[in-house]
């Protein structure tokens, strides 16, 4: 009798802890349907340094398309379904780099309160002009190679645009969220969001030229497969 009680208790404990820690993940793919519009050449001759780093010429890279039409640099995130929950802020910082007069990466995500490091790897002047609407706007001059500035966003905002007024072709977009469930699609267009508690969510995929697409998805323990996000080319 006593033993049975212990078994039941242990069982209950296992079940409850199993429920508490069951986590799901979402994987999927962003696809570009149709031919990507031709990229335009960037004229960097206004700054000789930049022109020199791209001796063979440089074009815009709005559409990076992998095999099967996989579209890279799409920001996918959980838009709805997490209301009322809070998530710890990662300790490690995120890096937004300026290399060869381009922002690297030019699409990224970050959590509210997480440290954003912005670095200049070029021997030329960059100004990091953050055009946030919901967060405070800021503009930093980085005249020296290796200069690093640190900023923290206080409110969620998708997406925050960064530009450089010295080099008008430069841009980056940072998705600021109050949770860690986001991903940027890889070169083949794939993405995975892990560690999601089971539930029903709205996923949004954002591409800086293609606009936004949303879909609803139900996540249980284990991996959920999201239908492809299909973007149409826009210039």
């Amino acid at each position: 009798m006593k033993k049975t009680g212990i078994w039941i208790a242990t069982g209950a404990l296992l079940v409850t802890s199993g429920m508490a820690f069951a986590q799901g993940s979402i994987s999927g793919k962003a696809i570009l349907q149709g031919a990507a519009p031709a990229e335009k050449a960037i004229k960097m001759d206004a700054d000789p340094y930049c022109a020199k780093t791209h001796a063979t010429g440089v074009t815009t890279k709005h559409y990076i398309v992998g095999p099967g039409g996989g579209l890279a640099n799409v920001f996918v995130y959980v838009k709805d379904g997490l209301a009322g929950k809070t998530f710890p802020v990662p300790k490690e910082a995120k890096l937004l780099d300026q290399q060869n007069c381009l922002y690297v990466p030019y699409v990224m995500g970050i959590q509210v309160g997480q440290l954003l490091q912005i670095q200049n790897d070029d021997s030329t002047l960059h100004n990091v002009h953050c055009m946030a609407k919901n967060n405070p706007e800021f503009n930093l001059g980085q005249p020296v190679k290796g200069m690093k500035s640190e900023k923290v966003f206080t409110k969620p905002e998708v997406m925050v645009q960064f530009k450089c007024d010295v080099h008008p072709w430069m841009f980056a977009y940072v998705g600021v969220l109050d949770h860690p469930f986001y991903a940027v699609t890889k070169e083949d267009g794939s993405f995975t969001i892990t560690g999601l508690p089971p539930g029903e969510y709205t996923l949004e995929a954002w591409h800086h030229k293609g606009g936004t697409l949303t879909q609803k998805i139900k996540v249980e323990a284990g991996e959920a497969k999201a239908p492809d996000f299909i973007f149409k080319p826009k210039t």
Partner: peptide, 26 residues
């Protein structure tokens, strides 16, 4: 830069503050 105290002009923010956060100087 309106995020910092006493901006002289809440302009288009095109001119960056060259001594970020009052120093140190680069």
């Amino acid at each position: 830069d309106t995020s910092r105290p006493n901006p002289v002009t809440p302009g288009f923010g095109l001119m960056p503050p060259n001594w970020p956060d009052q120093g140190p100087s680069p």
